[in-house]
């Protein structure tokens, strides 16, 4: 049996990778992708704990989480598409017209 610490380490690495992506890039699509990586880091955590405690509850939550992530990405992509139609760009640096 693989030790749980390794799962958690993998999850943490994935989360940091995703976070790094969100904070540094200015490309909208990459931001969405990075968020997905962070989400999945969380999912791995849940599965690992589910296996550790011998409970199916964590796995059920992961199913929900994946479904919601899919919906969220659909919404995100749709928004980006619309932005692209108007501004001919998906760079988030250019999406600042709603600030003060």
């Amino acid at each position: 049996m693989i030790q749980i610490e390794l799962f958690l380490l993998l999850s943490a690495i994935l989360f940091v990778v995703g976070l790094y992506g969100v904070l540094t890039t200015n490309r909208g699509i990459i931001v969405l992708m990075s968020i997905e990586i962070m989400l999945n880091a969380g999912n791995i955590n849940m599965i690992a704990f589910a296996a550790y405690w011998g409970s199916a509850l964590g796995q059920v939550f992961v199913i929900f989480s994946l479904a919601i992530a899919a919906a969220e990405v659909a919404v995100g992509i749709a928004l980006l598409l619309n932005v692209y139609k108007v501004k001919k760009t998906t760079k988030i640096d250019d999406m600042t017209i709603l600030r003060w």
């Binding site: 976070l19 969100v22 904070l23 540094t24 890039t25 200015n26 931001v31 988030i92 640096d93 999406m95 600042t96 017209i97 709603l98 600030r99 003060w100």
Partner: peptide, 13 residues
């Protein structure tokens, strides 16, 4: 309120 998504995300984290 820079309007820059990266900054907002940085504040959140």
């Amino acid at each position: 309120q820079t309007g820059n998504l990266n900054n907002y995300a940085a504040w959140v984290y």
